[in-house]
Write a protein that binds this DNA or RNA. Structure first.
Lengths: 231, 231
DNA sequence: TACGTTATTGAACAATTTGTTTATTATTGT
DNA sequence: ACAATAATAAACAAATTGTTCAATAACGTA
């Protein structure tokens, strides 16, 4: 709900906040990518405060005031970097999805036969280990944003980014050729299944190692509920 | 964010708003369960306004003011029935979960063999038809609350209520006896899978009939992604 | 170390929102 | 027609929002 909306968006300032029109060409950071320490500190403080408050009260159980009090920063500082709380959350969400997209480019040539081979050797697929490793690295934020009081919009995005792509690359040939309504449910079914595994792992505090999770994910791939499971 | 919190909760008034301490014992509804028409009308108006605004701007993209303006009702009327918007949403969520719990009591004695038998006859399982029938009946609210801008808390509750119970009743015997960590992921996997099917159906506007959805759900039950699928 | 740059600060501000209260009006069930 | 009560309009203090400003502090560089 904007009320005194004079400065509309100015999203460019967030991308290149340093070295914009410096008068003499001197006294400014030589490397544009390097951020001022204060900015880094502030953003980290807001991130930590966001996660803590999301866990405690849920995404809409606190105000910008609360966030700044928790981060021990002035409210003006918050509005220097973010439009509102949604913008703050979106920043981290987008960051994660970008990283995952980059991670997925490493497994474009994955085949079902490869998966079966690794499964027989009882070795975890390297891509899956890397995936769970990254998720673990972002565990604190993911736990907050995927849990209750998190952001509804994120889970579907994560599902589409990771799981749907993963399913569709391994999808059987006769499926890609026959796009019936059932195929869509087939994809939704398994994509949601793997998102559920990821979510359950994060919810329960990531007890298993990324290697163990990779093995669990692979094992589930060769199971159907309508038959007994071999231990 | 309560600010002038003199009346703490008083949730009892919501349950029995009629016939509380009537002076003469007359001039009050004889059947306590029957609600005043005005109350019914108001609640329906708030419900419709809620769904519309959730679809348009998301659960936190509007205020109580907006809601009352959309419902064409006074703000005091809203606070007569609900604490806040979260309370309004929770009312409908709880109602649905209660109905589903009741529906599930009708299938306590479902066996895997029954499912296989119906599958062979290519007939939809009556319980599944009833389930999708009910979901379709509540389609407008479910579409809003499960979609983006909905309530994060609801999907896990729906999953636990419907899917997890469903999976655990059909779960193979050797599983209930051996509660390893993998079994939890097994349950999370298939429960999330079926929630995904339900969500996808609702998201895409419930094109298929409840009978068709029951057949799709049964077909998916006998499929594993690691093998080709028989058409 | 000293310099110019810039992020942060504290304070103020109007516009909204929130939750509640009051007296008045309009509907309701009998 | 009558009594109960839901809905209404208006008002209210407390709180939130988004912005602006001058003053201060921390920063990167030379």
């Amino acid at each position: 709900m904007p009320l005194l909306k004079t400065k509309p968006a100015d999203a460019i300032d967030q991308e290149i906040p340093v070295q914009k029109r410096n008068a003499h060409g001197r006294h400014a950071p030589s490397v544009p990518g390097l951020q001022d320490r204060r900015i880094t500190r502030s953003k980290k403080a807001f991130r930590d405060a966001l996660i803590a408050l999301m866990e405690e009260r849920g995404l809409n159980g606190f105000t910008v005031n609360d966030l700044c009090a928790r981060a021990d920063l002035n409210r003006g500082t918050f509005y220097n970097h973010y439009q509102d709380i949604s913008d703050l959350v979106a920043t981290f969400e987008d960051e994660i999805l970008q990283d995952l997209e980059q991670l997925q480019s490493q497994m474009k040539d994955l085949k079902l036969s490869d998966l079966a081979a690794y499964r027989l050797k009882k070795k975890p697929l390297p891509f899956l280990v890397a995936l769970f490793d990254y998720l673990q690295h972002e565990g604190d934020f993911l736990h907050a944003v995927l849990g209750p009081g998190g952001d509804t919009r994120f889970a579907p995005r994560l599902r589409d980014s990771v799981c749907t792509n993963l399913i569709q690359t391994i999808l059987h040939e006769r499926y890609r050729k026959e796009p019936t309504a059932f195929v869509n449910y087939y994809v939704a079914y398994f994509a949601s299944a793997y998102l559920g595994v990821i979510t359950y792992w994060i919810e329960t505090g990531m007890q298993e190692s990324p290697e163990e999770m990779a093995l669990i994910a692979m094992r589930l791939f060769f199971i159907k509920p309508g038959e007994s499971i071999k231990l």
